[in-house]
Simulated assay, not measured.
Amino acid sequence: MPIDAALALAAEPRTGEISWNTKDVQLYHLGLGAGTPATDPDELRYTLESRLHVLPSFATVAGNGSPGVISGLSMPGVDVDLARVLHGGQSLEIHRPIPVSGTATATGRIAAVHDKGKAAVLVMRTEVADAEGPLWTSDAQIYVRGEGGWGGDRGPSTRLEPPAGDPDKTVERHIREDQALLYRLSGDWNPLHADPGFAELAGFERPILHGLCTYGMTLKAVVDTLLDGDVSRVRSYATRFAGVVFPGETLRVRMWRGDGAVRVAVGVAERDDAPVLADTIVEHS
């Protein structure tokens, strides 16, 4: 079996130093579409170094996102065909606000291996801490098609009951034609998001937007709309990637307020709200 669950779970964690600065944070925010209008005081918090705060989803690209999904696929006990791999979900737990620049230690390991029958799911956990203590914990759920069926634990279901009633707030965010080209400068160089020929080989009519770009855009919409623009209120953020979106399309972000949490559903406005992010929740103070 290409995935040896016992070996993967027993493997020694991989530890390395990561660092980032204000330019990295600004570039990430611009890749999410921040800065429109450029002189809006609320947008300047994402773009101007003297006012800068850090959207917590920056954790997915800090230090070029390493260790991450690709690192997880090279762990002992994991030998899979990249063509069968999907980034199925992403969650973050934020222990304290991310500084605008810093150096930290990132420790990555396979935290779980689940047998879904027709697929295996690897949970790649990354824990990041600096000299003052823990900063964030990130879980990437990696689906590997065709690698299930060995009789292992199916793992917990990540499906949530749909929110009741109409959303409390709905906003739309247009994706620029060049947005994937800008976002990839934060470290995800997968040609699927830039090369039309590669995208066609992968079964898409043209390059698609990074799922983690949609992830960041959605968190920004929640923070700006329901959390008074205060990034420090975010405690955790989890989603399941449910579909693709193309540059030039429009995200429709629907939000439901709850007790200490916001439920979110994201679809493509031009395609009758075709799902992009599902089972999405932002927990906050």
Rank of each mutant, 00 (worst) to 15 (best):
P97C: 10
A180F: 01
P37I: 08
R145I: 10
D139K: 12
G243H: 03
K118A: 15
E200R: 15
Y183H: 03
V128S: 01
E127V: 05
E12A: 15
H174F: 11
S101C: 03
A112G: 06
W256L: 05
L7I: 09
E177Y: 08
G216M: 04
L82H: 10
T107D: 09
S138H: 12
Y183G: 00
R84G: 05
S236A: 14
G258A: 14
L52H: 00
V244Y: 12
L160N: 13
G102N: 02
R240V: 08
G63N: 03
G31P: 00
S66K: 14
E249V: 11
L277C: 09
D224F: 10
W189A: 15
F204L: 13
G203V: 09
T126M: 04
D4G: 10
E132D: 15
L82W: 08
A140M: 12
A129E: 13
S157L: 04
S74G: 15
L82Q: 09
E93P: 11
L44A: 06
A194Q: 11
D166Y: 03
G108K: 02
G258R: 09
P162G: 07
E147V: 08
E177N: 10
E161W: 07
L181S: 12
G248T: 13
K23C: 11
E270T: 13
R271N: 01
T280D: 02
A242P: 12
M217L: 04
E172H: 11
A111K: 14
A180Q: 02
G65D: 03
T250L: 06
A62R: 00
G243R: 00
